[in-house]
Design a protein around this nucleic acid. Structure first.
Lengths: 180, 180, 180, 180
DNA sequence: TATGAATGAGCCTTCATTCAT
DNA sequence: AATGAATGAAGGCTCATTCAT
């Protein structure tokens, strides 16, 4: 791909992420094009339909998150790795990503369906973090990966709903997750 | 208000609730009118703008929920009342209402803003349940009403996201809420 | 249907016929709406997609033509009825309708497909005219209805292509059709 | 012109002819460029506007046809040359070229206008064939070149409309053309 | 009051054409 | 000279809202 095309594509993706998360999915493509400083046709060259843009934005986000999780896995205490990851995801990325997730949900789009491969990668890394924590005895043994994923979704919803109490509420959830 | 007008209004409200929760907020007013068996003009007579319909639907839901909470408060063990209420809200109403909440969020509408008075009523009853539970020593003393509300939102997000694990995940959250 | 709605529908149909025949199928719906003195939405209420409008226009034309043929069949010399009908169709309606037919063909729409029922009616009346003429001995016996229809299409193409010679050229074709 | 440029030009012209005739004039330039294996810019280098491409395609077709007519004129029976030519044009080239002609007509483009010089050449050769046939006494004396051209257009319309009856219908027309 | 037809702004998308690479 | 990315003006269609019946 030509250098200018790649630059435009990346710029559109970045702007789309911010815009969708902040203003919902109702934002016209024209508006995203305008904010990205390109013509509407350029957006459509890279993403033939609006849904392709959703997909690409989500895939991009998950890729970033998985990278973070991987680096967390490689270094530090296995007993606290999962907790650190969950707190980071909720408090750092929660609001923006939850905005995106809500926006998608509100329009009836299921992330698991649109980008199954990315989701798979994410669950894999989450599974490794969980297994390590359970082996270290810091997380109760009766929870599974899908449940941890669900708890994460819940905490992100909290962050989106009321950031002021998100930290404490997340700690309550993590306490429930801890081994007695 | 004439009897038939009141009946129409109630019917529209009911249909709107089901339709928004199931199909998102994108459903045209014409479609809701059709399902309710009235003309589009009739919907607009009762709800001058679409957002007024959103508001009314949410207010109606909260009113129902508050009634349930009140009856729960009047009867039974104060130590378990809050837990029962939270479980009931998540597992029984969660999916439908969460669909509505997501839909509203996805379009950038904040429930707290659109129906402040209903929200107030809801928080009041939740506060009474929480206080009773804390007095009974079954819920940790360091959580506040807004935090419990946030945890509820989180659990409903879980229910919406993955009903298969919602029950167990909710129990994990409630464990975190319990006094040691 | 309400009176005003029926009036609008008829007006749109009439304007669409003239406009498509004169300017081709590329004319925007907005333009047709403007010429008909209605909003674009009104056109779409009556004809949900542009192709529905094509269909309706063609069906309307064929209906008119069949009515004419029927009246011709009821009165006059059976030996000349077919010739009169063909000449009338070519010289009177040819240009306008051929404009429509060309326009449809140019976009890849086959009339036989879009309005099969109208076409059937048309072929039936043409068959009666042909049979009468053959019985009267004025038309060669070896031609069939589809062939006469095809010759009509050809003559209309001539009329559309070069009106100045259409009359004489049509006479040449009719001479070929005549019994020796 | 460089050799590769000439090759590209010829390739585009050929692809454009096939594509326009088969799929109509709505085909995007990008699509023609893709099928021709060149970039869109290359098409525009040779044909500055889409209409220039139409023109060139038609001119190319007429040139081929005139060449055929010329060779027919040079050899064989002058009494049947015109009939052979007409039959060949209708039955052999009819469908493809008629597709092109209809497509152009449907969009409001008149061939006589876009390529007057090619048309002139074509009429000249047709005139020679007609004169020879009339001298030989095989074609009625009261028809002129424009009329024969119109009859040809009509027969091609028949071929495009219903190939199954085209041969017999064309024979009917040619019978009309024949001297008594 | 109820109806549903009419309105028109706005959205997604396409594509002829231009221009940087 | 060739490429293909970028542009932006339309066009088809939807739908919230108004208004005549």
């Amino acid at each position: 791909m030509r250098a200018d095309a790649a630059r435009n594509r990346a710029r559109v993706l970045e702007v789309a992420y911010e815009t969708f998360a902040a203003d919902g999915l109702g934002v016209p493509i024209d508006e995203i094009a305008r904010r990205a400083g390109v013509g509407a046709g350029t957006v459509y060259r890279h993403f033939p339909a609006k849904e392709d843009l959703y997909r690409a934005v989500v895939a991009e986000r998950i890729r970033t998150i998985v990278d973070e999780a991987r680096s967390l896995l490689g270094s530090g205490d296995p007993g606290t790795g999962l907790f650190d990851f969950l707190r980071s995801m909720v408090l750092q990325w929660g609001a923006a990503d939850r905005g995106l997730v809500d926006a998608l949900a509100g329009v009836g789009i299921d992330i698991n369906c649109v980008v199954p491969e990315s989701e798979g990668e994410f669950l894999a890394i989450l599974g490794e973090l969980l297994a390590a924590a359970q082996r270290a005895g810091s997380v109760r043994a009766d929870v599974t990966v899908p449940e941890v994923k669900a708890l994460l979704v819940g905490c992100q919803a909290i962050q989106a709903y009321n950031p002021a109490v998100a930290e404490h509420a997340t700690d309550v959830v993590l306490d429930g997750l801890r081994a007695q």
